Amino acid sequence: MYSVSRICERDVEDVMTFMKRTFFIDEPLYKGVGYCNSASDDTPDLDEFCRAALPGVSLMAKNEEGSIVATLICGISPIVNPTDFLSALKNCKCPKYKKVIQMMILREVIMEIWNIYPNEKQVFEIKMASTDAKWRNKGIMNQLMKEAENAAKELNIRVLRIETSSAYSAKSAERHGYKCVFSRAYTEFMLDGKPLILPEPPHTKDNVYVKELY
């Protein structure tokens, strides 16, 4: 059994601990640059990015013992420049994480999502999603995604956005009714004539998915 709820301020530190032992070390982009290899690694840039979205409209699932078993880190973002990447790049402390930011900047410039949705000012952004390995395939993420849609409706935000660096998360987005508006092979994100990041197969493409609620 599990229960789903909004993340509150008192949950933030537990959420950060959970994210460091799941998403931070499993995410293909971070693996691709060797950024976070264990839950004990120092990851100030990623910590800051994650904390900036908490508690906000983020969601979690807890088991009967009160331990977090899944999270959905969400935020309300402007359609143009959903994250202040230039400031993040300027203040980045780790050269490895800097490559991730540079790739995200290239994605936004190439995609121009503001031209795809010229009438939208905001999007409900699903920034990170993670489930404890022992709790996968139990429908927990389905429930969290439904709650995210409900939150977007309550805020009168029409478009949800999720970036999928993983082949598995891309399939999950499609199962939840999201459509792909951007897809590009990692080999095409170039800087100084070389690919910025090359995650291990099957994670070969960077994708952005959206879902229009009405």
Rank of each mutant, 00 (worst) to 15 (best):
S58R: 06
I113M: 15
Y209M: 03
M104W: 03
V33S: 02
Y168W: 12
A167S: 15
L198A: 05
L89K: 01
E48D: 10
R21F: 01
R107W: 08
D45Y: 00
P55C: 05
L86E: 14
K146Y: 12
N156T: 08
Q122R: 13
K153L: 14
K20H: 15
D47R: 01
A185T: 01
D45E: 03
T164I: 10
Q102V: 02
T83I: 09
C180A: 04
A129K: 05
A52M: 01
L89C: 04
S165W: 14
E120H: 09
D26G: 06
G139A: 07
S77A: 07
F49Q: 09
Q143D: 11
R6I: 02
N137S: 15
P55H: 01
I76V: 15
I197P: 00
K20Y: 13
I68H: 10
I140G: 06
C74E: 07
Y178G: 00
K205I: 03
E108Y: 07
D14P: 00
R161I: 11
K121R: 10
E212T: 02
Y178W: 13
T17R: 15
P202Y: 03
S77R: 14
A133S: 12
R175Y: 12
E163N: 12
L54G: 06
L213I: 07
E174F: 08
G177A: 08
E163S: 11
K98E: 15
I7L: 11
S77C: 10
I25T: 15
N137R: 14
T164R: 06
I126C: 12
N81R: 11
E154P: 02
M190H: 03
V15L: 10
F18G: 10
Q102R: 13
T187F: 00
K93N: 08
K146E: 14
Y178S: 00
V69R: 02
A148W: 04
Y117V: 03
D42C: 05
G56Y: 04
V109C: 02
E154H: 07
R107D: 07
E174L: 08
E13K: 08
L106H: 09
C50P: 00
K93V: 00
A170R: 14
I157V: 13
A52G: 06
R107N: 07
S169C: 09
F24W: 14
K205G: 00
E174R: 11
L160H: 12
D14N: 13
I101C: 01
Y30P: 03
E212A: 02
I105H: 04
A173K: 11
L106S: 06
E13A: 10
L59P: 04
R10S: 14
N91H: 11
K31W: 05
M141K: 05
R51P: 03
E48A: 11
N207C: 10
M145T: 09
K31A: 06
V15G: 10
G56C: 05
V33P: 04
C74M: 09
